[in-house]
Simulated scan of single mutants.
Amino acid sequence: MGVLDHLFDLFEITPRRKRRKPWQTVEIKVKMDCDGCERRVRHAVSSMKGAKSVEVNRKQSRVTVTGHVDPNKVLKKVRSTGKRAEFWPYVPYNLVAYPYVAQAYDKKAPSGYVRNVAQALPSPNAADEKLVSLFSDENPNACSIM
């Protein structure tokens, strides 16, 4: 009887469950002018399946959705309200090596944030870098040059 029970357990057909989306936090930039805009966006996103919490910050033009949601579906749902929306393009400026280079600095960014761009570090063979290292304390030949 133990063998038969084992075989039935192996070949038992059970309905498969759908995979649940991973827990995510999606941040979206949406320009909201009034309470009505804020209410429309909040209602549209909170009615989505899997959305557990919705935070709307009208001052920063930011909507944060947390839950088992797909980021592209959240963006599409916000755009269906008639608002222009994009994924949150900013990071805190203290996390960026050069926060005020031309590509990263954005006048429309909230205070304390800059645009998230891949930044190139200066090459070590650049002329400016050679002059700085020429007269540094780590260079043993700096005294002979001066």
Rank of each mutant, 00 (worst) to 15 (best):
A142D: 04
D128Q: 08
I13S: 12
P110S: 13
I145T: 13
K18T: 08
V63R: 00
D33H: 10
D5C: 04
R17H: 10
E86K: 11
S111D: 10
S47Q: 05
E55W: 05
K18G: 02
A44I: 10
S46P: 05
V78E: 08
N141T: 10
S46T: 14
N139E: 06
R40K: 10
G36K: 05
G36P: 00
G112C: 07
N141C: 08
S133G: 00
V74R: 01
P89S: 06
K52T: 05
Q60N: 05
D5S: 07
T64E: 10
G2L: 14
A127N: 03
L121N: 11
P92H: 13
L4W: 07
N125D: 12
F11Y: 12
P124D: 11
M1Y: 04
K31L: 11
A120D: 10
K29V: 07
M48P: 07
S133R: 15
Y93G: 05
K18E: 08
Q119A: 08
H68E: 06
R20A: 02
V45N: 13
V56K: 08
W88G: 01
K31N: 09
R42I: 06
S80D: 15
Y113K: 01
R19T: 11
E12L: 03
R16S: 07
W88L: 08
D137T: 03
V114L: 02
A109R: 02
L4T: 07
P22T: 06
R62G: 04
S61L: 02
A97N: 11
P124C: 09
H68G: 05
L121E: 14
S47C: 10
S144F: 10
L121F: 05
A97W: 03
H6V: 00
H68M: 00
M146L: 13
